[in-house]
Amino acid sequence: MTFLPETGYVPTDEDRAGLDAWFAAYDVQSGKRDVEGMADLAVFPLNLVSDDSAGNGRTAQWDREQFVATMTQVMGEGSEDIVFESQRTPVFLSSALAVAFTDSTMTAGGESQQLRYADILVKRDGQWAFQTMIQGGWGDNL
């Protein structure tokens, strides 16, 4: 039997700062409803994991065009910025792989909504990008 090497990666301060900077940039793009800018921070095809109204788990892969079309509809139109207040818990699997769990309050047009989701991020050529979005309640749209 072959055992895998130790996988308990401990992130460096640089790892954490890089991931924090990525989320800050993504939040800026999201707040401005800049869906193309959001797409620039992803790896396509993008994996999606959710559940549907019947209680079944659902998965899909979106290309950039599908992401932009869907997120444009989800983000809605308007000139008012969306404000996100988020608490993130990143788990680094290596220096180039991370899973980030997020609890967030999104406020737009004076109304707030609670969000809980996870993202799987990969680092390529020194830059983080999200590759998988995991959030309940999207499955009927997949």
Rank of each mutant, 00 (worst) to 15 (best):
Thr72Lys: 07
Met75Tyr: 14
Asp40His: 05
Ala60Gly: 12
Glu80His: 05
Trp138Asp: 01
Gln66Cys: 02
Arg124Ser: 11
Thr89Trp: 12
Leu115Ala: 06
Asp34Cys: 08
Gly31Cys: 03
Gly126Pro: 07
Asp125Pro: 04
Ala96Cys: 03
Thr12Met: 01
Val49Ala: 12
Glu6Tyr: 13
Ser50Cys: 09
Ala42Asn: 03
Ser50His: 12
Pro45Gln: 00
Thr105Ala: 03
Arg33Pro: 05
Ala118Phe: 08
Thr70Gln: 07
Thr7Ser: 09
Gly8Lys: 12
Val49His: 08
Arg124Asp: 10
Asp15Gly: 05
Val74Gly: 01
Gly8Thr: 15
Arg124Gly: 09
Thr107Gly: 06
Ala25Cys: 00
Gly137Lys: 02
Gly137Glu: 06
Ile120Lys: 00
Gln135Thr: 09
Ser104Lys: 00
Thr72Trp: 03
Leu93Gly: 15
Gly136Leu: 06
Arg64Gly: 11
Val43Glu: 11
Ala42Ile: 02
Val49Pro: 04
Thr70Asp: 03
Gly78Tyr: 05
Ala21His: 03
Ile134His: 02
Gly110Cys: 10
Tyr117Cys: 02
Gly109Glu: 06
Gly18Asn: 08
Met71Ser: 07
Gly109Tyr: 10
Asp34Val: 15
Met75Ala: 15
Tyr117Met: 09
Ala129Gln: 13
Val43Asp: 06
Gly78Lys: 02
Ala129Val: 10
Gly31Val: 11
